[in-house]
Amino acid sequence: MKNKILLIMLSVFLLGCASPIEYDREIFSITSDVKLESINSVSNVRERDGQVLVQVQGVSSKNQSVYYKVEWFDYNFINISSDLSRWKRANLRENSDFLWKMVAPSKRAVSYKIYITREIGDGLLD
């Protein structure tokens, strides 16, 4: 009996130690309530017009609805406000791949940061 209790305690302890996923924190800002197996992004500059295109791909750990948005920055890391930097909602399936495509609002945009969260509030300002 004592052994069983020890075993249960050990497995609970080990579950708590499940390591969080590794991702580039300069590119992603992900809240802890978003459960992912993996996430990464690939970007390229379109030769024809210098437009930056980004593709985000990942795998979800569970069925969940998340919000994501991308903020774009110029050479001086000044944020370029744009209608394209809006929260979008995505339904992710457990152990399934997801793929999001993003496009820079202008040629001035050279870097980006992607925000992912489960909750963005209702927008009501007190």
């Binding site: 209608d83 809006r86 929260w87 509030g121 209702d122 927008g123």
Partner: peptide, 27 residues
Amino acid sequence: TVLIDTENDTTERVAALEGRDFEDAAS
């Protein structure tokens, strides 16, 4: 009367077309 932060407005939607629908379509 309260202000709504248009960046993360998730308040209830109406059946008719509203501002957020135009923003979604345009974006």
